[in-house]
Design a protein around this nucleic acid. Sequence first.
DNA 1: CTAATTGCAAAGAATTTGCACTTGC
DNA 2: GCAAGTGCAAATTCTTTGCAATTAG
Lengths: 159, 159
Amino acid sequence: MYVRPVTDAEEEREPLEVLRDYIAENGLKSSRQRELIAEVFFNAGGHLRVEELLERVREQDAKIGQATVYRTMKLLTECGLADVHQFGDGHTRYEPVDAPEEHHDHIICRDCGRIVEFYNADLEALQDNIAKAHGFRLTSHKMELYGRCQKEHCEHKPG
Amino acid sequence: MYVRPVTDAEEEREPLEVLRDYIAENGLKSSRQRELIAEVFFNAGGHLRVEELLERVREQDAKIGQATVYRTMKLLTECGLADVHQFGDGHTRYEPVDAPEEHHDHIICRDCGRIVEFYNADLEALQDNIAKAHGFRLTSHKMELYGRCQKEHCEHKPG
DNA sequence: CTAATTGCAAAGAATTTGCACTTGC
DNA sequence: GCAAGTGCAAATTCTTTGCAATTAG
């Protein structure tokens, strides 16, 4: 797994802090529900479907409505704290954006559904060049590699 | 737009021919509807939503059911003649696979929704290497660059 | 106080499925 | 003739929305 090097200068801000600031700056209000959903989301390890997230959130507060989870995930996406993915299994997945400046991509196993993250600097640079060559100013990208992982690593079965 | 060089040796087979063979080899049956849907699909230029495809197909035969279009697109995907894409606007899009060995990727404009295709050999090679490095045998990939095209090219508005 | 947020249930949108009828092989 | 394909409508699944009640600032 790629581990981002964090220097003192670029120290990361807590996601919840970023969220609170965004809320304050936009005339919104914080709430117990939003805090809970965000907290569960950021501690969950990523690639969560809304359904899974709702499940985990309800372990802490059974009364949370699914609409609130949808609304909160949209909010987190707006303020740049979450990324949306469609890996082709029909489920929308959200993933925390820990370090906006160090984007990562995904390899998905067609056999077992395992999702592996990777980071490749050459790839990032290449993408920028391609976009420029076509007259685009790049804002983000998604790259998904689909394949089969070696048998010895292929532990889980698709859900 | 990238144009694939076609040599005599790797001459392309007509998609409809490929489809007919697949049907024959798998104990399926051809039908007027399938032929029509496939024909419209391959002549449509790509990135079609099912809804748009259904519309165009019904111009030729108003009685075609939407379920048939869904079922046919699934069939075309199975036999490698169509690729599925989710570009994040909430619509599933299908695109013809003309030349399986010359995959292309997409740049999508966040402002006008324009979808531009590109091919980059370095990118393809890099992907293979990345997959290998993670113990995956690559079967396919999707890469989507999101950005903003220069104003002078930004003609259409998002639909 | 006032406006934003919530939970619920209903509404929507996209896709799949059951089934009787039709059609290709 | 039999199995596969079709069209329709109903059923699913995922997500959004309307609204009255609640809550943060």
